[in-house]
């Protein structure tokens, strides 16, 4: 049975890592890596609420309800920033900590509930995945995560050019009549859903590592987007494999070990990758002279 347990753990970890790695690649390119952090915290009250209503974490309404809270939090962050005039990072910090606090209150007042406790919320329970009820022949979480990965792959496949264009040059995209808001919230929606379904496996804190880590590794290995996505997925799979081995060796938390391996992979990519440390010395020096404006001229708005 141990062998089959290991298989489910590695597979589930890989499903989390690949889905969040692909989405994280676009977040990183949009300079929005931390929005994943915000969403992963903001979905907590949604999860608690949905859990109260449905009594379990695996129903479709639970997932969609919690993801909707995540999506709402990004809308709230935008609104506070745009209309409220609050700086972007401040509005993010305000919204997600507030929602997370609501979630923490919910979780702790449900104290002692076997399916939803603080340990599980923060660190995940990947190690026990093999004991879950089966759905379509796999542990329920694994099946859900597989469905999520297929959804992510499908949307990225169909919407690749839309995300590519709006990520690189939102101004031009808007000029040719493409709704940048649609693509923004489509990506945010996918991140929300992925965060919710990954929650149980790896916990609220480590899902951020899976959103940023594989993407950052890919960034150090290539300067082509299709390869960046590929490397993000590959490094995610390796982190899952290596993390399981490390956790088994040290008898430690599996998700934590996977994140540690991800960090180690990043270090290797940083030291030896073609776009890592070695290129920093070869980069063109920026003198800053290009940006000088004539003395006495007013500053552009």
């Amino acid at each position: 049975m141990i062998g089959s347990d290991a298989f489910w753990i590695v597979l589930t970890g890989a499903l989390v890592a690949v889905a969040s790695g692909l989405l994280g690649s676009f977040l990183l390119l949009r300079r929005m890596a931390l929005i994943g952090d915000a969403i992963s915290h903001a979905v907590l009250p949604g999860i608690v609420l949905a859990f109260l209503f449905s009594g379990n974490l695996h129903s479709l309404p639970t997932v969609l309800g919690a993801a909707a809270v995540g999506l709402l939090s990004t809308i709230g962050i935008e609104a506070l920033h745009r209309r409220g005039g609050l700086p972007g990072d401040a509005s993010m910090g305000l919204v997600f900590t507030f929602l997370f606090a609501v979630g923490v209150i919910g979780v702790s007042s449900l104290g002692g509930n076997a399916d939803l406790d603080q340990e599980c919320v923060l660190y995940g329970e990947l190690a026990f995945i093999g004991f879950e009820e089966r759905l379509l022949g796999m542990p329920t979480s694994t099946t859900i995560l597989l469905a999520n990965l297929l959804l992510v792959l499908g949307v990225l496949g169909v919407g690749y050019r839309g995300l590519f264009l709006t990520t690189f040059d939102a101004g031009y995209a808007a000029a040719i009549g493409i709704s940048t808001a649609f693509w923004h919230y489509l990506l945010m929606g996918l991140v929300s859903v992925t965060t919710v379904v990954s929650f149980e496996a790896v916990g609220a804190i480590l899902v951020v590592a899976f959103l940023i880590g594989p993407a950052a590794i890919g960034h150090l290995l290539t300067d082509k987007l299709p390869w960046l996505l590929t490397w993000a997925a590959v490094s995610g799979v390796f982190a899952s494999l290596g993390g399981y081995a490390l956790a088994a060796l040290l008898d430690a938390n599996v998700a934590g070990a996977m994140t540690a391996v991800l960090g180690f992979e990043f270090l290797l990519a940083f030291l030896f990758g073609p776009y890592g440390w070695s290129t920093w010395r070869r980069r063109r020096p920026q003198t800053g002279l290009e940006k000088l404006r004539p003395l006495g001229a007013p500053v552009k708005p």
Binding site: T167, D169, A175, G177, H219, K224, W227, L228
Partner: peptide, 19 residues
Amino acid sequence: RQRVSYVPQRESVDWDFPA
């Protein structure tokens, strides 16, 4: 829109983009 073409300022995008 098809007949109108817009060239943004060069600094408006990140040229480190993988493209």
